Amino acid sequence: MYKSINEQTSQYCSFFQCDKNLESNTSYLNLPSTRQELKAYEDRNQTHASIHQKGLSISSKDTFLLSTVVCSTKLTQNVDLLGLLKWRAEPDKIRQSLESLMKVDGEEVVKFLQDTLDALFSIMAENPQSEEYDRPVFNAVVFIIGLIADRKYQQFRPVLDTYINEHYSVTFADHKLAKVLKDLLDSAGELDSPTQLLQALKAIEYLFKFILRSRKLFVALHGEATGRQGFEPGFESSIREVFRPSTG
């Protein structure tokens, strides 16, 4: 038997044997559970007798190591990811936070997938007329899509689909994402390394899911007529331009 340990640490815990009539008794919880506590207990009582009298016997040879980690499913402890999630607190470090995301362990990113994507598109939404952060946000989105494509995290693919269909809310990201993709394709011959382009092409399925979802949200907000007469030509043009370098 052992007493619960709530600290974020490692402890060598003690084993106790008990009589059957004590199986539903919780008095053992007040007994020493670790080597350190047991030593202090013995020093006070000078013997194991008091433990035996409670119907418990302690094994002096057997112990086991219990390691506990305090974690949160809502608040990350990763400094780089936390900097991105709280980007409004330090707006002058947005670019640094976006670049630092690429260094974060994939397991931490997928754990906070919705919060991370919300932060990325909030940065884009905060600067609708500016292109300053369009490329780094695009790269970060591609990075996340690439993680989900990895076999290790493929179980999060439905989570990403749910996010796009139910939580994503930026109405003009289609033009921004399409433009960055177009620029990347146009400059393909000038790139020192094709890695960035290849990563974007591998992520193109979900990039277009974001683009199309953004388009649908725009139409839902402004109406079908506005979408067809005022916005549709520009939307179609931006999509055509994306593929022009690869088909022409």
Rank of each mutant, 00 (worst) to 15 (best):
Y12P: 02
S14N: 15
S14H: 05
F16C: 03
F16N: 00
F16T: 07
C18D: 00
C18R: 13
D19L: 14
D19N: 09
D19P: 01
D19A: 13
K20W: 11
N21E: 14
E23Y: 04
N25V: 02
T26F: 10
S27I: 13
S27F: 13
L29C: 07
L29H: 04
L29Q: 06
S33G: 10
T34D: 02
R35V: 11
Q36G: 02
K39I: 07
A40E: 07
D43W: 03
R44D: 10
I51S: 05
H52S: 07
Q53L: 15
Q53R: 15
S57Y: 08
S57E: 13
I58S: 03
S59P: 04
S59G: 06
K61I: 11
K61M: 12
T63L: 15
T68K: 11
T68A: 13
V69K: 12
V69D: 06
V69W: 04
V70D: 07
V70M: 08
S72L: 01
L75W: 06
L75F: 08
Q77I: 08
N78C: 04
N78R: 03
V79E: 15
V79G: 09
L82F: 09
L84V: 02
L84G: 00
W87P: 00
E90P: 00
D92H: 12
K93R: 09
K93A: 14
K93L: 12
S97P: 00
S100I: 03
L101W: 03
L101T: 06
L101N: 05
L101F: 08
M102G: 06
K103C: 09
K103M: 12
V104I: 07
D105H: 14
G106A: 02
G106W: 04
E107R: 13
E108R: 00
V109D: 04
V110N: 01
K111C: 05
Q114N: 15
Q114H: 15
Q114P: 03
Q114E: 14
Q114A: 15
